[in-house]
Design a protein around this nucleic acid. Structure first.
Lengths: 217, 217
DNA sequence: GTCAGTTTCATACGGCCGTAAGACTGCCCT
DNA sequence: AGGGCAGTCTTACGGCCGTATGAAACTGAC
């Protein structure tokens, strides 16, 4: 349940231009939203030619989708690995807190201030609500990733009806997805700046305390 | 802590066209997002002339803002009234569950399937993340409404550090704002349709149980 | 050195966008 | 009767958008 960063390399030296576009687009989409960023904005930010987007990705929609796909895969893989490790530690039946930690830790790692994946997380959160119809369809349809977690949770709380588990997982995901800049800033304004965003380790414990309490009850 | 609907009239007979535009715009914005809906879409849906938006509201941005302002005011007023009633019932110091109920009940009332305010809630949730810079600034700046609730919560839990209250309120609002169609559909797909969206009274109790547990802990 | 293949470049096209301008309509007030 | 006016209509303008095209530049193999 630690937040230490682990080796996240990825060679990806192929096609410098394609990568410049990818990174610039992810950044701008995350900051301003899909519809508010034009292909011209992206190529200008990346310092490449206007036609690059359509040459390397096919279309603006396809670019968005590829970023979404890659980041989602990465996030899901990290989560699955942590859940797997929790399974190993507890003989295939980890307690609720460990399951929730596997769900929380990857995005919280990404969110750490010095982490350059911070923008990727903002992108994912945004794409979830503002994405293309294609993205929304996938989100609605492909729930295999979540199933691992709901299964683990029902195993950890066999006394709880399935439906109850789903609802509480729904609430927990709401907590998690609300961690975007603007919402945090709002609450921090209310707290007159005393919320201290930086400490992600403390945030993890806070979130686990809150979510676990709601789950164990 | 009941969900019975109360008198929500509002005369609003002024300028039929203006109202048609208002309603059509709210609906389309809620369903498809601000950037994905054109002035032409709105006026077509409303069955009025293209120029109506600019004549009655000044601009598309101003239209969005006016819808946001009105719905926010209505929601905040309902919440404030419920909190006030809770105060009266408990001599100015209601327990956590009552405070959270004052926060949850208005949006849940709006969300009830037969309620025509359902679309207004979807609009508000969307505007919160996709709105204009002006809307985001207001959300970030104007926290007077939230202060009533954070004050009440710190009074109900004087042993808890202020900062802790803000964090937990942040989590609770995350739970609440995640109640959009798409997110629910996702979880309901995972539950194979067994989540039974319709019963908002049960949902209220479920949310209160979860949030209260996290707060009391 | 040539040629095929890949990548970059400048440019343009058609389309939809938000907004403005000005003519027109109906209604009330005097 | 007639003038004023709020509201509605048609139409068009300039602008930015995503994408397509074809030429130019580059790369490596032989």
């Amino acid at each position: 349940m630690s937040l230490e960063v682990e080796g996240a390399d990825e060679a990806q030296t192929e096609a410098v231009t394609k990568n410049l576009v990818f990174m610039a687009a992810e950044r701008l989409f995350a900051l301003h939203g899909f519809q508010n960023v034009s292909v011209r904005d992206i190529t200008a930010e990346a310092g490449v030619n206007l036609a690059s987007v359509n040459y390397h990705f096919g279309s603006k929609d396809a670019l968005l989708f590829e970023i979404f796909r890659r980041r989602t895969t990465e996030l899901n893989r990290e989560r699955a690995r942590l859940l797997h490790e929790a399974n190993d530690r507890h003989g295939g039946k980890p307690p609720v807190r460990e399951i929730l930690a596997a769900l929380f830790i990857p995005p919280l790692r990404w969110m750490a201030p010095e982490n350059d994946r911070r923008i990727s997380l903002q992108f994912l959160i945004r794409a979830r609500s503002e994405g293309t119809e294609e993205i929304r369809t996938i989100l609605r349809t492909d729930v295999t990733h979540l199933r691992r977690f709901s299964d683990a949770l029902t195993a950890a709380r066999p006394d709880l009806p399935d439906v109850e588990v789903y609802w509480r997982l729904h609430f927990v995901l709401g907590m998690l997805h609300n961690n975007r800049f603007s919402e945090f800033d709002r609450m921090n304004a209310l707290a007159e700046g005393r919320m201290g965003e930086g400490d992600t380790a403390a945030l993890l414990e806070r979130m686990l305390d809150f979510a676990e309490a709601g789950f164990i009850r």
